[in-house]
Structures are given as C-alpha cells and as structure tokens.
Amino acid sequence: MARKWLMAAGILVMPAIVPSSAHAAGTASGTLVSNSVLLQCSLCGAGGITSAAPPFVVDNKVNVSVTDDDGAASSVVAGQASAVSAFAISNLGNTVQDYSLTVANIAGGAALFGRTDNFDAAACMVRVESGATPGYDAADTATFINELIPDGSRTVYVVCNIAASQAGGDLAIVSLAAATLQGGTPGMQGGATAATVGVDTPATVDIVFVDAVGSDDAGRDGRHSARGAYLLGTPVTLSKTIANVQDPSGCSAASGCKVVRGSILTYRIELVVPGAGSVSGLVLTDPIPADMTYVPDSIVVNGAPKTDAADGDQADFGITSANIVTVSPGSVSAPLTIWFTFRTTIN
C-alpha cells in the first residue's frame, strides 16, 4: 500500500472545492465555521473516531469607503444652481448595510486639487443615484443608502448652489461622510451600529469596525469620508477687430482709408485667458467673410508670419477647413494672450 501511495504523489487533479460565499469582502457574517477531525487507529474501530470543535459564527466586519468620483474640482459658474460633486460609496464589509450620508462645508484655507478653499457653497444636499439615468437628475431623490450588499457601491451626489457673487478661481471644498447603519429592512433606514464590546459570543454575530481613516473621520468608527470641490471657471475674452484698412487709392492712416471694392482689410483675432491652468488642443478659427477673398500667406500669429500650407507651423488657410483660417497653438498655459492677423480683399 505504501508503494501505491508513492506512485500517486504528484497526480494532476482539478481543485475539488468551489468557495461557497467567497467575494472580496470575505465570508458573509452569520456563516458557521465548523471543524471536524477523523482519528483512525488500531483501537479506534472500523470507522474511526470523529471529534468536532464547537462551530463559531463569522462576525460582521464593517468597512466602508467614500471616494471622490470626479478626480478634479467640478467646474461651475457664478450663480449656478444644483452644482454637482460626485462620490462613490463602497461596502467593503461582509454584511448588507444601510448608510446615512452627511455633507459639510470645509473652512477656508484648506487645500484640494492644488487650490485653496475661499468660500462655502450654499444650500448643499445629498442625493443617491437611483440608477434610472446616469448623472444627477430629478429622479435621484434618496438621501440615504439602502441595503448595500458586500462589495457593492453606489454613486452619491453632493448638490449645492454657487452664489452669483463668486469670481473666477474661487474654490469651495465639501466633505461627504457615510456612517454604517444596520441593514436588513429594505426601504427603511436602519438603526445605528456600534462595535461589540466584551467577550465574543460564538453563536451570535458581533460587530467589528475595521474602516480606515477618512478625510474627516477617524479609523474604526464605522464611518468614512472624502472631499470634493467646486471651482469657479475663469471667463476668457475673444475679440475680433479690423486692425487696418488699405484702399486702392494709396491712402494713409492719417488721411483715412475707405472700405470699397478692392480695399485690403487686416483682421485681428485676440484670445486672452487670465488666471491659471492649462488648455490642451487649443484651436482658433476664422472663416473668410462673404464677398471677400483671402490674401495668400498673410497669416501672422503673435508677430510671426505663417504659411498657408499645413506644414507644422500651427497655422494654415483652407487646408484644415476650406476658406477658413485655422490657428492651432496646441497646449498652452494660462495666463496667456494669443493673437493672429490675416488680410482679405473686398471683392
């Protein structure tokens, strides 16, 4: 028999056991873990002797996480109502739970996304995504999370108003906190949870808090929090002027030139972006007006003459788009001013 056993070593087999309640959050609370041992021996009878340790129950491992879903400040304008900052709330524990939600304005001076808080958003409220349509809308009316399963997550919106008096660059930081409540009653907000103190009772489900420290809460308190922000955008100025007029009579600026057939007009387009930040893929375009003809190779960008061809000098006429002057500075950083001029002849 020993020889047969040695030949069997290294046999290739499929794992026979499939986990019954396995998921990332762990075995569901309330599961009984049993252990049984079989002892075989010459005095132990034909079937051997079995012994089982008393089973114990897997307790409730409470763990919740709140994360900012935007990854950057939400861009808003002065006077905007129902400005949205999105968060994701996940149940990292092993039991179905409800969660209460509270939002708080963070005081001035705090930093987020490289900027400093200097105002409080107004009339903030919390709404849970209903699942009907992505994004915050009137259908999202729930104010607490109901029956979130282990490894499940929900999108939650902080919705605030931005005062009309806010200026470009203003930043308001908000904090969203989720507190773990008892689950088990669908449609109703569950009661508070607390970590079980004292000696374990192996037959009943105790509660253990293992959550991490959040942006505005302690670790192992059944809560978690994260911060989001609203950032007022900076208005840009785009202007188009006629910088110069030359008529066929050989006039001068002093004598005044007339806009007649054959006059040559110089158009100037200027973009001013104040504040800070960056833009990628910036493209400025200007179509040639009707009854005018573009003067070839007349594009000048920030003082530098450009060719009409698409030859990598970030400007062309009629190539990117027919009858249109296209200027493509690409990636630029604010504050910045870009201007370009070109000439047309009146038909």
Binding site: P19, S20, S21, A22, T27, T31, V33, S34, N35, S36, V37, L38, L39, Q40, C41, S42, L43, C44, V58
Partner: peptide, 15 residues
Amino acid sequence: KPAANIVITNPVPND
C-alpha cells in the same frame, strides 16, 4: 495496550 496505525485526517474548515 499501545495503539498503532494512527492517522488523523482534518478537512480544511469551510470558508
């Protein structure tokens, strides 16, 4: 008297 051929077999507990 002595016990012989002692073998203890323990399934890995559930979960």
